Amino acid sequence: MTDNSAFHELFGDVRLMAILRGMGVERSLQVATTAWDLGITAVEVPVQTPTDVEALRVIAEAAAARGLHVGAGTVVTLEHVRQAKDAGAAFTVSPGFDVEIVRASHEAGLPALPGVATPTEVQHALKEGLTWFKAFPASLLGTGWFGAVRGPFPQATFVATGGMDAASAPAFLEAGVRVIAVGSALENPAQLPALSALVKGGAD
């Protein structure tokens, strides 16, 4: 039986998570610093290339100096789990639900945040012992999806990922989403004030 209840502590009361996809080492660190300065304590670095893995390693070191945590994203192979652990990641995030990846992450001491988009996936993941899920692609699922799924699965907690920004986030938070994952929005200076306001905004 796996367990990812550690995300309650990893996210705390912060409503946003930063995703740094394919930015390279230097730019990833710059955007991570922007996120941290806004109060976004959780950062995800997808690991699809060797450069991504190096970026994860550098950002994990910088985060540790602040007492913060960084996760590895787009974890879809057992090798990705190993790379995440070696690079200093504190958790893994996947686009879909793969029980093998979830179990390998758990065994490595890394809580896993699997992607779900259907009630069937949520039900199977809950059976595995998980309670936190990445709803992906959230912008296509829509806000109504969360209320509908929360009916039969009230114990499920969701991180909305995919197409999220400062404009769309409030509606998803109102729909019961616990955390909004943002990427390119962090590189848009016009969105930073609104993102800052959202860091601890919204209702449980």
Results as ranks from 00 to 15, higher is better:
Gly176Trp: 06
Val179Ser: 11
Glu121Tyr: 11
Thr157Asn: 11
Arg57Thr: 01
Val199Thr: 13
Leu20His: 02
Ala197Val: 12
Gly22His: 04
Pro95Ser: 11
Ala72Gln: 10
Ser28Thr: 06
Thr49Arg: 04
Ala32Pro: 04
Thr41Cys: 01
Arg82Val: 08
Thr157Met: 15
Leu173Met: 05
Leu192Cys: 04
Val70Thr: 09
Val58Thr: 13
Ala160Gly: 10
Ala62Phe: 04
Ala125Gln: 12
Arg66Asn: 14
Pro119Asp: 07
Glu9Cys: 14
Thr143Met: 00
Leu56Glu: 00
Ala125Asn: 09
Ala18Gly: 14
Pro46Gln: 09
Ala138Cys: 10
Asn4Trp: 11
Ala42Met: 11
Val53Phe: 03
Gly151Cys: 08
Ile19Asp: 01
Pro111Gln: 01
Leu140Phe: 13
Phe153Asn: 05
Asn188His: 12
Ala197Asp: 05
Thr120Gly: 10
Ile101Phe: 02
Ala156Leu: 04
Asp204Thr: 14
Gly24Cys: 09
Trp36Met: 09
Glu44Ala: 05
Val31Phe: 07
Leu140Asn: 03
Gly22Asn: 13
Pro95Trp: 06
Gly71Met: 08
Ala138Thr: 13
Gly71Leu: 10
Val81Ala: 09
Ala160Asp: 02
Thr51His: 11
Ala35Met: 00
Pro154Lys: 11
Pro170Ile: 04
Leu126Cys: 09
Glu174Phe: 03
Gly67Lys: 07
Gly151Ser: 15
Ala60Thr: 01
Leu192His: 09
Ala156Pro: 06
